[in-house]
Amino acid sequence: MTINSLYIFDRHCICVYYQDWHRTRRPKPASEAGLLPCRTVVAISNELPPPPPSTAGAGVGGLTSTGLAFDEEAKNMVKKISGRDEQFTSYRTSAYRLHLFETLSGYKFVMLTDPKTENMRVQLRRIYEGPFLEFVVRNPLVKMDSREQGIDNENFRAALDRMVRGLPVYA
């Protein structure tokens, strides 16, 4: 059981925070791919040397992105099939599992884990209620909707890291 990485996207689908734990393949920098950060899918299947352990970079300048355009698609599909206002919560492949928690304000918390882990929505919600509200939302120095700067807050990073490392699925 492992936790690979955590992404936080704002309501414009811009990646405002990103952190890695166990990861064997380095995500392709969005700028190198010539794509707008986070809007588009960046193939992570490029063979690159393994990253230094626990690298962390935040914000649009932090050069990391994942496919979240298709998340919107998945969300619409789930909504249409169920006929209710229902969220898409997770999917699983042979290699990993993606968990999604979306707040009412449009922030998306995305976590990649081992495929065998249980649903992590509750834990993502706790990240939101705990470190995120405490160190980001209630912090007057953080520009919430800047589109230029991600979350670059040591307290948040430390609290989040402690929280994730304390989870039973983290190994």
Binding site: N4, S5, H22, R23, T24, R25, V41, A43, I44, S45, T66, G67, F70, E73, A74, M77, V78, I81, S82, R84, E86, Q87, F88, T89, S90, Y91, R92, T93, S94, A95, Y96, L98, L112, N119
Partner: peptide, 25 residues
């Protein structure tokens, strides 16, 4: 389309496409 994309994204090694997609109900 979602299936094709999910097989291209992977934090570790090659991956199959989505095997299970979950909503709330």
């Amino acid at each position: 389309g979602i299936h094709a994309i999910t097989s291209r994204l992977s934090p570790n090694g090659s991956s199959s496409g989505a095997n299970v997609i979950e909503g709330e109900t």
